[in-house]
Each structure stands twice: as structure tokens, then as C-alpha cells.
Design a protein around this nucleic acid. Structure first.
Length: 588
RNA sequence: CGGGGCGUAGCGCAGCCUGGUAGCGCACCUGCCUUGGGCGCAGGGGGUCGUAGGUUCAAAUCCUAUCGCCCCGACCA
């Protein structure tokens, strides 16, 4: 049994001025963490205790499906060069040189190291499937660390990798992780949801993220209360209500209209008396691609058309063109459209026929415009717009694609219910990697027929700090927070109201010892402080249950307080162990 | 990387504009008092004013540079 009076639990009355989100404020105030530098934190006694409990749960569950390794975090350049990520990862990769001047880096994820082992050791289909995992520190030089432990530069991650002989086998490994992740997050007491995710530039096929709703999060998730549809905004789609097209004017050919000074979609729509839904939004972008060898940046004009009231989803676009994009500058706009911004449109420019042809500018049209007619766009001429524009007839896109961002209230693609959008924090991510790493790094095994094949991989991550952060975010009030018992630094705090009263102290000690002997994690607040101080601290530090040992001892009872709801139960001293055997294991 | 803000005691802040003794609350130490929601009284310790340079008789304060931290952005032409 731990005694508070002997421990280092530096609680603060006030939050540090630079903390904004609840979890950051409370974890600092409760003495869990202290900041060392931007995005780098020290874990003190309580924080580390909670941290270790989370790790233990993750390890226990992962051991049921995989094998734990421990890999180096200091990597030679060569393996990152082999996977092609030495240049791809850019500034996010912490780089350094050893004494001989050789390039090294700090691991931000471990596909390379795992694949290197697979390459050297795996020879036969008989050795598959394999699931290897580790729980280790990762380094990422984030452009902007923020919100306490939410986005940091050094963190602990459980990362797992599966190697399978074919896609069907990968499905099995993937499902194992999906189920295991659910068990882990259930045991951690989190209210999470699983969403379809963008597999990103990694080139995976299927991907799910495990998300906890909180305004502190960085991701937007689209979900349906009517069915189980849920997806990251970067990936989400919806059912659109039909829009009535305008009737053709004049001879039905593109018709120039004078729109002096009308630049924005709203202005033009109002000026012409039409809905923005009948307008085309023209987005002028530049695709940038860095040549790995020469270091030169290749530019390519990419123009995206969306419905006037729609927003471009950059993640979808980036996935489609497989390169970074930025808005065109004034000169670039002028060069391509021969017109100032505000009057841009697709007419009068020769567009590429397919994405691979580098020479010509690319015209990507959002699917919501496919089949529409008599739309209005800029005329590529100052103060003029064009009516009667029909995609496929008046201009020919390089490709149609789903590029728009879903907005709240649109219909679910499965059941039609109104979709909601919430902010959430990502606590886990699983995805089917395919053969990207095994292929590039030369991992091969022989199949049943003696033929050489490339094993395919899955990659699976859990952010340990984020489990703690999410738990604090989902359970706090103005006085502090409460963690689920499974991941709290202690399950129960025993608070005698006055330690100078021998009878109170001895009852408290007795209760603490009996609960400890029964397997509960107990801390005795034996500090010589006023009751108010102890109660405030107990409320602050995340312990889900408190036992107040006070006046009622003379009647043979103590009070059990459930931190989350502040429910109070009088329990006899004699039956306290039995009480917790029922109560604590049953509810959070 | 762009924009904004902030660096003064462990935490939260004032002082800076208008240069001249570095201050307040909490925390901390000692004593007394008190003991069911951060109690009270008395005494006390603790600061290179982020760093470097400059102006000045004199710099926390004015000027320059630099470092650090926080927030917003890096999408809607």
C-alpha cells in the first residue's frame, strides 16, 4: 500500500498558462507529466503508473496474437533509402550523423527494420503467417506539436507488423488486429468508434482508425446514427440530393455574361439569380514533385472543379494525384488561364487526356458534377462568366473523381440518415500495407509450388499516450478527471479526514491493507492536511474511487465516493472488501 | 514555413508606455491554531527579469539580434 505522505505527487492549484485542452491542463495539474521541450514530456510517478497499466493491457492482448520484439530506434540511412522513405519523410524524420559522418535517423515507425528482418530470415510459406510487434519510443519532428500529449515529438507506440503469403491470409491477420484492438480499448475503458480511413500515400487497400470523440482531437469523423457507417472525413462519402439543372439559354452554346466585379461564388450566384449549386468552383493548384535524385521540384498545373457550394477534400486529391499540391500564385494563374482570379473556368485550355501525360495541365472534375448540365463558370476573362456549360460536352476532364468533402447533414450513403461530423482523436490505426516494403526491400519466400513470391504486410499502431489523453478527455469536470480503474494509477484512495485522530488513521490503514491484500491498488492519503485539501487532490488526480474515513467510523461505516458521478455509499468497515469486489470490477 | 501572442520566484500574474529600491496571490520553511471541501494568525527563505549586444550616469523598462514556449494557419482564387 502506498502512502501519499511519502510520494512525490506535485499537484497544482492552477494550470500552466500555455495549456489549452483539458487533458493537458489536468495531467500537468495532477502531477502526471511535466514538459521538457515542445512536444517532449517527462512522466512522473502517477503518470508513469497509469502509463504502465496501459502498456500491460496492450501487451497482454497483443501476446495472444503476436510475438513481442524490441527493435533499435537508431537506424542507419540505408534501410530508409531502400524503402524510399529517406527522402519521402522529409523534415519529420529526425536525422543525425555518427562520428564517422554516416547518416542515421531516429525511427518514426519500424516497417523498415521489421522488413529487413523478414528479408533476411523468412524463406518459406511454411513460416507464415507471422505477427511481430513491439512497444517502443518513436520520434517525429512534428511541424507543430500541440495540446499536451496529443501531438508530441517523442512518444510510445505499440507497432505491429504482419507477414502473409497472400491477400486472403492478410485478411485473417487484419481481422485479428481489429478484434484485438477492440479488446484493448474496451479494457482501457474508452468510448471509441471504428471508422473507415484513408490509407494515404502508403498505398494500402483497407484501413480503419480507432477514434475517441473529443473537441481536443485533430481529426474530423463522419458518422451515421442510423446505421454503422463511420469514416474519416478524408475518406467519407455521402448521398447527394438531386439538383435541378438550369435550362439552356439562347442557342445552348456557352454564353458569355457580363459580371463586373463579381468574384466569389456567392456574389456571382446572387448577381445572376441562381443557386451556387448551379455554379462550378474552379480551384487552381500546382502539383509539386521532388525528384529524389536531382532534388529538383517538378511542377504541374492541376485544376479541380467542384460544385459551387462544395469544398475540396485535399486528402482525396492528394491520394488521387499522388503528390503534394499548393494553390497557384498569381503569375501561375495568369499564365494558364490568361485571366485574373475570380473569373476562372475550364474553357479554352487544352487539358491532359490522362493523368500520366506530364506535358498538359490536368483537369479533375468532382463526381457531383458528372451528368450535370448548363452550369456557370468563369469565362477566363476579367468581369465575365459563362453560362450553358455541360461537362463532357463543352469541356473534357482528364478524369472524374470523388474529391469533395462531406458536410454535416448530408445523407448517409447506406441508409440516407443525416450524417454528423465530430472532432476526434485517433488512438489506433490498422492498415493493409500490401507489398510496398517487402517488394522494395527484397523480401521473398517460396510458395507451395516452389515459386518465389513477395509476402504482403499489414501495419498496426496504437499511441499509448493518446489512450491516456483520450481517457482524460472523456472523463473530466472543473475539479479534475477520473480514469477507468483499469488504467488509473490507483483504483482507490483512502482518505482519513484527520490523521491526528488515531482511531481514524488506524481504521484507514486497516482498510487500505485489507483492500491491498485482496488485490486492489490502493493509496492511503495519510498526509497531515485539512480534509478540504485532500478531497480537492483526490478529485484532481484521476483515481476513480475514494473512501472517506471520518465521523461515521463511530457507527462502523465509511463513505465510498464514485468520482465520476459523485455517488456516495455508506459501507460498513467490515464489508469494505466485499463491496469493492462487487462494485469496482463491475463499473467504471 | 506564414501570422499572432508570451518569456519577471515552483505556479498564476503586476511592473515596461513615461529608464532610477523588483512586487502581489498561491506554493514553500518555522511557530501557534484548526480538522468533512484548497482554514486562520505571526515570522521567514527564494528572482542571472530567457540570452547576447547596444544606447545611457543609470536598463526588467528604450534599440538590435537571438533562443524558447503557446495559439491560428499553411484548403475554398
Amino acid at each position: 500500500m502506498h502512502r501519499w505522505s511519502e510520494l512525490f505527487i506535485p499537484t497544482l492549484r492552477e494550470a500552466p498558462a500555455d495549456a489549452e485542452v483539458a487533458s493537458h491542463k489536468f495531467l500537468v495539474r495532477a502531477g502526471y507529466i511535466r514538459q521538457l521541450a515542445a512536444g517532449i514530456y517527462s512522466f512522473l510517478f502517477l503518470g508513469n503508473r497509469s502509463f504502465n497499466k496501459i502498456v500491460a493491457i496492450v501487451r497482454q492482448e497483443m501476446d495472444k496474437i503476436g510475438q513481442e520484439f524490441f527493435l533499435p530506434v537508431l537506424h542507419p540511412r540505408e534501410i530508409w533509402e531502400a524503402s524510399g522513405r529517406w527522402s519521402l519523410m522529409g523534415e519529420n524524420l529526425f536525422r543525425l550523423k555518427d562520428r564517422k559522418g554516416a547518416d542515421m535517423c531516429l525511427g518514426m515507425t519500424e516497417e523498415e527494420v521489421m522488413t529487413e528482418i523478414a528479408r533476411k530470415e523468412l524463406r518459406s510459406y511454411k513460416q507464415l503467417p507471422q505477427i511481430w510487434y513491439q512497444i517502443a519510443t518513436k520520434f517525429r519532428d512534428e511541424p507543430r506539436p500541440k495540446a499536451g500529449l496529443l501531438r508530441v515529438r517523442q512518444f510510445m507506440m505499440k507497432d505491429a507488423y504482419s507477414f502473409d503469403i497472400d491477400a486472403a491470409a492478410l485478411d485473417v491477420s487484419y481481422k485479428k488486429h481489429y478484434d484485438t484492438y477492440c479488446r484493448i480499448f474496451d479494457r482501457c475503458g474508452l468510448k471509441y468508434m471504428v471508422v473507415e480511413a484513408d490509407s494515404g500515400a502508403m498505398g494500402g487497400k483497407e484501413s480503419h482508425e480507432f477514434m475517441v470523440r473529443t473537441p481536443a482531437g485533430e481529426d474530423q469523423i463522419v458518422s451515421c446514427d442510423g446505421c454503422n457507417y463511420a469514416a474519416n472525413l478524408e475518406k467519407a462519402t455521402s448521398k447527394l440530393e438531386g439538383v435541378e439543372d438550369l435550362r439552356p439559354e439562347g442557342d445552348g452554346k456557352p454564353l458569355e455574361v457580363h459580371t463586373p466585379g463579381q468574384k466569389t461564388i456567392e456574389d456571382v450566384a446572387r448577381f445572376l439569380g441562381v443557386s451556387p449549386k448551379n455554379k462550378i468552383k474552379t480551384l487552381a493548384l500546382m502539383g509539386e514533385e521532388k525528384d529524389g535524385k536531382t532534388g529538383k521540384t517538378k511542377l504541374r498545373a492541376i485544376v479541380v472543379l467542384t460544385r459551387g457550394d462544395h469544398q475540396l477534400n485535399e486528402a482525396k486529391l492528394n491520394g488521387m494525384v499522388a503528390q503534394a499540391t499548393r494553390p497557384m500564385d498569381e503569375g501561375e494563374i495568369k499564365a494558364l488561364f490568361k485571366s485574373p482570379a475570380g473569373y476562372l473556368g475550364p474553357i479554352g485550355i487544352e487539358w491532359a487526356k490522362d493523368l500520366k501525360k506530364d506535358a498538359l495541365p490536368v483537369l479533375l472534375v468532382d463526381k457531383a458534377l458528372e451528368g450535370r448540365s448548363n452550369l456557370i463558370a468563369g469565362a477566363n476573362k476579367e468581369d465575365y462568366h459563362l453560362k450553358n456549360l455541360t461537362p463532357g460536352k463543352d469541356f473534357h476532364p482528364t478524369a472524374y473523381a470523388d474529391l469533395r468533402a462531406v458536410t454535416a447533414g448530408e445523407g448517409c450513403r447506406n441508409c440516407g440518415n443525416a450524417l454528423r461530423i465530430d472532432t476526434a482523436v485517433e488512438i489506433g490505426h490498422i492498415f493493409k500495407l500490401g507489398d510496398r516494403y517487402t517488394e522494395k526491400m527484397g523480401a521473398r519466400v517460396l510458395d507451395k509450388n516452389g515459386k518465389e513470391v513477395t509476402p504482403i504486410m499489414g501495419s498496426y499502431g496504437i499511441g499509448i499516450e493518446r489512450i491516456l489523453t483520450a481517457a482524460v478527455e472523456q472523463g473530466n469536470d472543473e475539479n479534475g478527471f477520473w480514469l477507468p480503474p483499469s488504467i488509473a494509477p490507483f483504483e482507490i484512495v483512502v482518505s482519513p479526514t484527520n490523521v491526528k485522530d488515531e482511531s481514524l488513521l488506524s481504521v484507514a490503514q486497516d482498510i487500505g491493507q485489507r483492500l491491498g491484500a485482496a488485490g486492489f491498488d490502493v493509496i492511503l492519503d495519510d498526509r497531515d492536511e485539512r480534509p478540504g485539501v485532500k478531497f480537492k487532490d483526490a478529485d484532481l488526480v484521476g483515481i476513480p474511487f475514494r473512501i472517506t474515513v471520518g465521523k461515521k467510523v463511530t457507527e462502523g461505516t465509511v463513505e465510498v465516493v464514485l468520482r465520476s458521478t459523485r455517488e456516495v455509499h455508506d459501507v460498513t468497515i467490515a464489508s469494505i472488501v466485499e463491496y469493492f469486489q462487487g462494485a469496482l470490477r463491475a463499473k467504471a
